Computed example of a mutant assay.
Amino acid sequence: MGGTLVVSRAVNNHSFYKKQLETLGFPNVRVTSLDRDGLSALIYDMKPDLLIMGARFYQCSTPYMMRGMRRDFPKLNMAALSIGEYPADLAMYFILNGVRSYANAFDDIDEFYKGLDDIRDGKEFVPETVQERIDARTEYPAGARLLTRITTEVLRCICNGFSKEEIADNLAISPRTVENHRNELYRSLNVRNMAGLLAAALDIGIITRDELVFRHRNFMCTPLAEKEK
């Protein structure tokens, strides 16, 4: 069937998104708010050439959820879009988790439309600010080399307030495996509690203050730096 599948929670805007993307030349646009198993079933049925997901569709864990989709649909071209403020320190995790393109209308509307053109044409698009952040993380400080890639991801999730069950779901591992990685973190970083893990992660550069998120009661996530203003 092919075409473009757009995933957005903003149900009232679905027809608007469809019209705008079709005007820009995206073929056979379909917009849905289905998630998890429902979304996977739709992808199997529709077989889209391109999946576009709202950056905050799964709140804080959207990059990790898209990594799971990359695993399930390795040939699917995926892009993430944001029309609101979304820090580059968080956006880089889309690319690190296998998403080919990311564009943000809030930062630069002209760049956003250029990104849409590249995405439509099957090219990769990453804003310069996001690429700079990715390049800056190509090598971690010495302390981080003690950790495996998956243990590092567990540490980032812990620092951002995810529960054991949420980490397991986001990283496609079991809760027991999460516990094992957490215990390994305690030993490797020589700390005894969650506060120590956060301090160590900041100290060795695995995570920065701008990457930390704060969970409100409505489960919306905003950068900690914004909360402190």
Score class of each variant (00 low, 15 high):
residue 144 A to G: 02
residue 23 T to P: 01
residue 69 M to I: 04
residue 145 R to D: 10
residue 85 E to G: 03
residue 30 R to Y: 15
residue 43 I to M: 12
residue 27 P to M: 04
residue 151 T to C: 02
residue 111 E to Y: 07
residue 130 V to D: 03
residue 125 F to H: 13
residue 38 G to N: 05
residue 147 L to W: 08
residue 115 G to E: 00
residue 140 Y to W: 05
residue 73 F to C: 07
residue 23 T to V: 15
residue 144 A to C: 14
residue 138 T to N: 05
residue 43 I to W: 14
residue 49 D to C: 01
residue 29 V to Y: 04
residue 112 F to V: 01
residue 105 A to L: 10
residue 78 M to L: 06
residue 79 A to F: 05
residue 97 N to T: 04
residue 98 G to T: 06
residue 86 Y to S: 02
residue 112 F to H: 08
residue 149 R to H: 14
residue 82 S to A: 15
residue 138 T to G: 10
residue 21 L to Y: 08
residue 135 D to M: 09
residue 109 I to K: 12
residue 139 E to K: 13
residue 30 R to E: 15
residue 135 D to G: 10
residue 85 E to V: 00
residue 57 F to E: 07
residue 24 L to V: 06
residue 107 D to Y: 14
residue 117 D to N: 14
residue 79 A to W: 04
residue 131 Q to K: 01
residue 89 D to T: 11
residue 110 D to K: 03
residue 134 I to Q: 10
residue 106 F to D: 08
residue 78 M to T: 09
residue 115 G to F: 05
residue 136 A to V: 08
residue 48 P to D: 08
residue 45 D to N: 09
residue 95 I to W: 03
residue 93 Y to H: 10
residue 106 F to Y: 15
residue 138 T to F: 11
residue 29 V to S: 02
residue 81 L to C: 13
residue 146 L to W: 07
residue 74 P to H: 01
residue 97 N to Y: 06
residue 96 L to M: 13
residue 145 R to F: 07
residue 139 E to A: 12
residue 52 I to L: 14
residue 22 E to C: 12
residue 149 R to A: 15
residue 49 D to M: 01
residue 139 E to Y: 08
residue 153 E to W: 07
residue 100 R to F: 14
residue 104 N to C: 09
residue 114 K to L: 04
residue 143 G to N: 14
residue 141 P to T: 03
residue 39 L to S: 08
residue 122 G to A: 10
residue 39 L to A: 07
residue 102 Y to Q: 12
residue 43 I to Y: 14
residue 140 Y to I: 02
residue 98 G to M: 10
residue 130 V to P: 02
residue 137 R to C: 13
residue 100 R to I: 14
